[in-house]
Design a binder for these strands. Structure first.
Lengths: 234, 234
DNA sequence: CAGTGGTCTAGACCACCGT
DNA sequence: CGGTGGTCTAGACCACTGG
């Protein structure tokens, strides 16, 4: 733990406990540097973190203020993470029903999305995610099989992301997402317990490793009134 | 323009022109500091920018690499901005048809979303955004009338955001969004040229000023196959 | 073990805001 | 104008990676 992280933590706590109330001026960097016995640069780095989290507003010549939203925000995470469902719904029971699991070659769209050659092998996976015994999300996933080897039905019943992280020791680097509405296909109707005219929310995404290699292209579909996509940005 | 922004710009250009190709090692910070005749801290700050933009990957002990995605990304902006339609579709002809424009008091939901008292006045605006003569988005907007005074039909036909920025001199500070699918209401059907069973994509958002004061609560609805919501994150 | 990036310092100067 | 935050420096030490 670095000094600036410690200091950011202390200030964050003071904001939450309203020692520094909403809309008020925070002590200046020189005073804080003295209090924490560090250089001003270190205090500034701590403030950089809090600004990224959306807790404070800094004005040259005026000072640093606590934002009105500092308390009301549930979480500080800037965007919904691409951690997979298992982590997002940690408290509820998430099961996975494997509908289809094949090895195949990529079509043109997939070649482009995953930066692949037409002869590179891919996994084609269709899973139904079930939460508390109700169908929740129908996931069509395509993965680079050379990059993520050794997938089997056992893993598919649990968390693919855990496997990639902990077994293969690969780090994630980001994702591109397209969120759109769509009509229910027969597939959706069959597995998501929905009507012919129920709207579907689809999250199409490409997920990257930390060096920028795309490893997954997926479309996650759910019935319109079961799930939304949330974004917080500052 | 600061030194570290200049340096970030130069390095960014070298990456784009493949002087530093994808997957390659960038010269170390000490060499770059010498080349640009600055201290190493300044080079590091430049690198901080490029990392935020998702162009590079830094590994302690190893070096700094160009990410595979550095070239393929259209834009570096981390999230779609809340600039309003007028700016997003700068090249196309965007018109606004004002369907309804009233002054009113907030209901409970609005009081909560906009941090208002029940006696605070609000604008209730319904606009149809028309692009190239086709209906595009139906916007239900509620604004804090004390915060954003002086709105009139003239402004509603153009860009409210420009008015807030340039006339009122207020800066934006962020937004919360919920993206979801919904069934078409009679209202949607009437104005968006859609069928009873066409899915609707709705973006519900609260937009904040830089000090965290919420000033707008809106729901933007469009037919399922006309618009998607895109997110890029690193 | 050499070389990398990350942290931290003490101090300097600058840009900006309010009075 | 005084006080704020932003930038920048030169140098030190540390943590980590790779051969």
């Amino acid at each position: 733990m670095t000094k600036y992280e410690m200091i950011a933590g202390k200030i964050r706590q003071r904001i939450r406990e309203e020692v520094y109330p909403v809309d008020s001026l925070i002590p200046d960097q020189v005073s804080l540097a003295k209090e924490f016995k560090v250089s001003r640069m270190t205090v500034k780095k701590a403030m950089d973190i809090l600004e990224l989290e959306g807790l404070i507003l800094r004005k040259r010549g005026a000072g640093t203020f606590v934002k009105k939203t500092a308390l009301s925000e549930g979480l500080t995470a800037s965007i919904m993470e691409y951690e997979g469902l298992t982590k997002q719904l940690a408290n509820q029971e998430v099961k996975s029903q494997v509908i289809s699991f094949k090895l195949d070659f990529p079509n043109e769209l997939t070649q482009e999305k995953l930066m692949l050659d037409k002869h590179d092998p891919i996994y084609k996976i269709i899973r139904l995610r079930v939460v508390d015994d109700a169908p929740y999300i129908l996931e069509h996933t395509i993965m680079n099989a050379n990059l993520i080897p050794g997938i089997n039905e056992d893993i598919l019943h649990q968390s693919i992301y855990d496997y990639i992280h902990k077994e293969l020791n690969l780090q994630f680097g980001g994702a591109h997402r397209i969120i759109q509405a769509d009509k229910a296909s027969e597939y959706d109707q069959k597995y998501l317990d929905c009507d012919e005219h129920d709207p579907i929310l689809e999250i199409e995404q490409v997920v990257y490793l930390e060096d920028g290699t795309p490893f997954e292209y997926s479309r996650s579909r759910n019935k319109y009134n079961t799930r939304s996509y949330n974004v917080v940005d500052f």
